[in-house]
Write a protein that binds this DNA or RNA. Structure first.
Lengths: 133, 133
DNA sequence: TGCGTAATGTAATGTTATAACGTAGCAATC
DNA sequence: GATTGCTACGTTATAACATTACATTACGCA
C-alpha cells in the first residue's frame, strides 16, 4: 500500500534508535535531509505521530523531543526518567503506578485515555561524577 | 524591592485564575497587552517561571500551557487531569504515587528532582454528555 | 553622590508545530 | 480501460512557543 510514508517511518525510527538521547523533530529532519534535502517538517511530524501511535516511539513532553522505545512492546505504562545532565532517558514499566493514578483520577469521574509520566533529575552515573572531585 | 516584576506576576496570576482552562503564554500576553500594549514575551515567560517556582502556577507540558494552582500550597506532588474535550484541568494531590515513582526510578540509581504527571482523557461531565443523545 | 549589581525592558531570533491545499496512487464500479 | 472516490502524501506558508543578547533602570550602600 502506502510504501512512501512507511519508508519515512523506517528511516526516522532508525535515526532515533542510533541515539540514546532524545532528538527534536528538527534534528531528525536535519538527518533526513542528508538524503532528501527538500523534506518538510510535516513529513517528519506525520511519521513521528504514526510511530508513537504504534508504540515504537515516545514523545518526551517536557522536552519536546522524541526517543525510540527500547522496552519490548508498546508499553503504554512507561515512566520516562530524564537525566538533565547527560540527557539520557531510562524507560521503566510501571503498570501498578499507572493503575493507581487512573484509580485516583477516576474517583472524580475522570476517564484517562493516555498519560504522561516523566521524571527529571540525574541518572546514576552523573550523580556519581558529582561526588568525585 | 522589585515592584515592577512583582506587579507583572500578580497580573499574570490574576489572569490565570480567572480561567478554569489553561492558557498559553501568548494568550496571557494578549491579555496583558490590553493594559500594556508593548509588553514582550520575555516578560511573560519570566513571570510564569517565577510563579511556577513559587508553586502558584503549573505548566502543562503536554499542552504547552499554564494554569493557576488551585490546591492550597505549592504541591509538588500534583497530578493534572486534562479533559481533551472541554479543556478543563483537575488537580489531584498524590504524594503516595509520587513516592512510589521515585522509589521505582531510584532502583536504578536515578535521582528525581521534579516530575511531570499528566493524564489526558475526559472529565465526568463530558463523559456524561456523550452517553445522552 | 557615585558605584556596583541585580532586576527589568526591548528587539531580534530561534525552535517547535500545524494549517491549508493540491497531487499521486490505488481500488472498485461500471 | 475510463471514471470516481478514497486515503496517504507532498509542499508551502505560517502560526505558536520560547529564548538569547544586550541595553536600561532602580536600588542598596560606601
Amino acid at each position: 500500500m502506502n510504501t512512501r510514508g512507511q519508508q519515512v517511518q523506517r528511516d526516522v525510527l532508525a535515526i532515533l534508535r542510533r541515539e540514546r538521547a532524545p532528538l527534536s523533530a528538527y534534528k531528525v529532519l536535519a538527518e533526513m535531509r542528508r538524503a532528501t534535502p527538500k523534506m518538510a517538517p510535516t513529513t517528519i511530524y506525520r511519521a513521528l505521530a504514526a510511530l508513537i501511535k504504534a508504540g515504537r516511539v515516545h514523545k518526551l513532553e517536557s522536552l519536546n523531543a522524541f526517543i525510540a522505545c527500547r522496552s519490548g512492546k508498546q508499553d503504554h505504562s512507561a515512566v520516562l526518567s530524564i537525566c538533565d545532565e547527560c540527557g539520557q532517558v531510562e524507560e521503566t514499566a510501571a503498570p501498578e503506578v499507572v493503575e493507581a493514578l487512573s484509580t485516583l483520577a477516576g474517583r472524580s469521574g475522570f476517564r484517562p485515555v493516555r498519560h504522561v509520566i516523566e521524571l527529571r533529575g540525574q541518572c546514576a552515573s552523573c550523580e556519581n561524577e558529582e561526588v568525585s572531585p
